[in-house]
Simulated scan of single mutants.
Amino acid sequence: MVRTDAEDCEALFEREVAELWNGDGVDVVDELYAPEFVASPTPDDDWPAVSTDRSSLKAAHREWNDAFAALETEVDGLVVDGHTVHAQWRRTGRHEGTFRGIAPTGNDIAVSGYSYRRERGGQFVEATDQTEMPTLLSQLGVEADLEH
């Protein structure tokens, strides 16, 4: 039986969650993402968008992995349409390393987010991620500046 485009796209996203978000390493980025993908910024980003290269994406994942022990992401909702994925997720962990200049607090975190992916040729060519940063910062004891 031949898989549909939607099934291939969903499998690629599920692999990203399992191996990159919940896995041990970031080298899988080279398999999951096209060499020059588009990382679209989101309106609530409090830092510059990840550039459109794999090394920057790996650095962003290392930052989260280094800062939060037992980091786990669970997908709450998934909509796949052809070559696109829309996912709602929840990430949990414990703040045991520096995160964006915030010293470890030992606090548990639970933050929701959204991801969009567009696939072409078996790799993601476009990605957007949105994390509830004000919620995360509050859980780390930092007051978020919502005025910008």
Rank of each mutant, 00 (worst) to 15 (best):
V28L: 09
L146H: 04
R54W: 10
S115D: 07
R117T: 08
G93H: 03
D129W: 04
H95S: 01
W21A: 06
W21K: 00
D44C: 00
A11H: 00
L32E: 02
V85W: 06
G23Q: 03
V79D: 12
I109M: 01
A11N: 06
P35S: 05
D76S: 02
L20P: 00
E16V: 10
S112A: 03
T105K: 06
A110M: 02
L136P: 00
D24Y: 04
E19H: 08
H148M: 01
P35T: 03
A39S: 14
Q139D: 02
V125R: 11
S40T: 15
T84C: 13
A69T: 13
G113I: 03
S115E: 07
R3C: 08
A60M: 14
R62I: 12
Y116K: 11
F68M: 07
G122Y: 01
E14I: 03
Q123A: 14
F99E: 04
S40E: 13
A110K: 01
D66R: 11
F37K: 05
P41V: 04
A6G: 08
G121V: 01
L78S: 10
T52I: 10
W89F: 12
D66E: 15
A110Y: 00
T135C: 02
A127Y: 13
K58S: 12
R118A: 10
S51F: 12
D66N: 15
G106R: 02
A6V: 07
W47K: 07
Q130N: 05
A59G: 14
G121N: 09
D129V: 03
D45R: 06
T4D: 07
Q130K: 01
A67Y: 10
L140D: 06
H148Y: 04
S115K: 05
R117N: 11
E31M: 09
G121P: 03
R118Y: 07
G97T: 03
P48K: 04
P41Q: 07
V28N: 00
Q123M: 12
T131L: 13
D8R: 14
W21V: 10
L71N: 08
G25K: 03
R62G: 08
D30C: 01
V85M: 05
S112N: 00
S112C: 04
V80C: 11
T105M: 06
R91M: 09
A60F: 15
G141A: 09
A69K: 08
F37D: 11
G113D: 02
V111Y: 02
D45E: 14
V17E: 10
A39I: 06
M133E: 03
R100I: 09
F37N: 08
W64V: 15
A70D: 15
T84I: 11
N107H: 15
L57A: 08
E36T: 15
T4Y: 11
T128F: 12
A87T: 05
L146R: 01
Y116Q: 09
E96D: 05
L71F: 06
D66A: 11
E147K: 01
P41Y: 10
L20V: 07
D46P: 12
T128R: 15
V111R: 01
E10T: 07
V125Y: 11
R15A: 14
P104K: 15
D145L: 09
H61C: 09
G106C: 12
H86G: 08
V2R: 15
A103L: 10
W89T: 01
Q139I: 00
E72P: 00
E7R: 08
A110R: 00
H83A: 14
P41E: 05
G97Q: 09
E147I: 00
D46N: 04
E143G: 09
E7G: 07
